[in-house]
Design a protein around this nucleic acid. Sequence first.
DNA 1: TACCCGGAAGCGGC
DNA 2: CGCCGCTTCCGGGT
Length: 634
Amino acid sequence: MKLLPIPLSPLGAPPLSMWSSDFLWRYPAAPPSPLAELKTQLPTQLSSDPRLWGREEVVVFLRWTEREFDLPKFELDLFQMNGKALCLLTKNDLAERCPGAGDIIHNVLQLLIRDAQMLQRPFRSDLPSSPITPTNRYPLSPHSHPPTPNWNSLVPPNGENSFYASHLQHFMTSNSVTLSPAPSIDSQAGSPPGQEPPANIFSSNSTNDVAQASTSDASDARSSSASGASATAGNSSRSSSNHSDSEDESANFKHKIPKLLPPPIHHKSLSNSLQKHQQSPPVTPIFKESSSSSTTPSHLTHQIGDFKQHSIFFNGALDAVTNTSGSSSSASPSTPTTPGYLSVKREFFPDTPTEPNTNGRLLWDFLQQLLNDHQQRYSNYIAWKCRDTGVFKIVDPAGLAKLWGIQKNHLSMNYDKMSRALRYYYRVNILRKVQGERHCYQFLRNPTELKSIKNISLLRQTMTNQQQQQQSTATASSTTSSSSAEAQNSAAAAALQASALASLLPQSTTNFHHLTAALVQSSNNLKLQFSGRNAEDEPHDLSTSSSNQNESFIKNESFIKNECYPLIHGANGLTTIQLLRQSQENSSSQSPSSSPTSLSPPIHHLSLHKENQEQHQQQQHVEEMPTDLRKINN
DNA sequence: TACCCGGAAGCGGC
DNA sequence: CGCCGCTTCCGGGT
């Protein structure tokens, strides 16, 4: 079992508000089960398994949550149902019935459900097969929760209890760092960027479905079919506290961590995960800050705090992470007061419109989220050195790696491993290393571009096709020396890169730095290649773009005009502009529905792997874009 | 010693 | 089954 490497010693006496989330992040492995405390606070007449509640218990529960979480008064008329039905309500449903409190109710319920489930089956079976598929758990509408994050990544590496993981996923959803934008703007074709729907903006469909289900006995039966079997059995043995208390740290860790982490959302996985787990994935118990003030159970208190802070508004998802770093103990004074993610706009480049949300599931996105936290709560881990140029520094490599590890549920994550992942970004021009400066990297694409990475991929494809055509004609009239082939490849890559970036201009026109930086970089590499020098010795290292010299260098429009374009032009016979035009035409033709000014719908994924493999291919074909990109990057 | 690099193999999710 | 995005491990360089 893995132990949480994060130090457990407290930082002294942080403000209560801070305890709630930050502490947990830093000391996620806090001992006892939060559930235990949650349960102890439940009205005694309530069974710990909400699915067993009758109507009266439901009312008792709702009143209790009103008090405990200072929630607005519920309209109890809207909750004329038993516990099972209540459990079937989606977050959205609950939000509709009790605005402002739906999330909390939902999460508390999920916590209880999950716990009940856990108790009903052999706990911590290390066999992947043991878990009951969450799929059948609650027959909720398959369409509900569009924005539900995909927490698959939380599934323990060893395949442990997927059901558990699915529940965690849900929890994370609540506490997510969710930038609130609907999960997949990608998939929401046409949805305007910048739209940041509240956490509970689900389709009415789902709501209705669920509502219906929730009030129907049939659904009850169905819902119980999955969980019920084991549920009833486990019912009696519900000394949950024992259970969780006795768990090893690893288990505890898993219990808590997830809540604190930004919930990754993946458009694609959305529907799937929704269908699979979405049925109100249980969560973990939390409590009210006031409920416990002692330090010991503080983890509980904190969780509650988190819960209250995050669940409703889903703002500060990353609050949990706040101020702490495994290794850095200087808790920042910042407190997880208000969220902000709902209204937060990414600002690698301040003017960048909101983009599709990958929600921390991808490393670069995770980093962006930390970097762009409005309250700069993660500055102890990572911080911009020059936001305009995308240069950032990992202040606390170990701590950041831990956070990332938590996010991905790879608890043994360290900087070495994480940095390997970062290095994979080099070849696709997402990142580059700032030479000479430790722990400093530079984003080569802004969030918008990154979010549209698929478009880039698409562009690459179209470019590839073009190149193939061009080359086929070119080969007829020229003898391809290895150098010229290389030059062509490089040029193609450069042009591709430029086109990819430029294709995003409608969204990031103001990001001159980036476009130019990319162009400069490409051209530099080209120049180096032409001159037979190692690309790594590039003279104009943009990595130091934070310096005035380089900044002005990058800004030098004439340089771009005179150096970059001609290079690209000369190499493959097409100007960047032409390439851009072509690629845009191609992409628009491929996606007729897309408007001329908007990017074509994403189709492909950026491939890191393949590029790597393709590098070794003998055939020096322009098709080998990856190789080119790689050259350019390095 | 820590950082940095990139190859190679593998894994889980899709 | 293949792809993607890492994760893990490693040998080597600075």
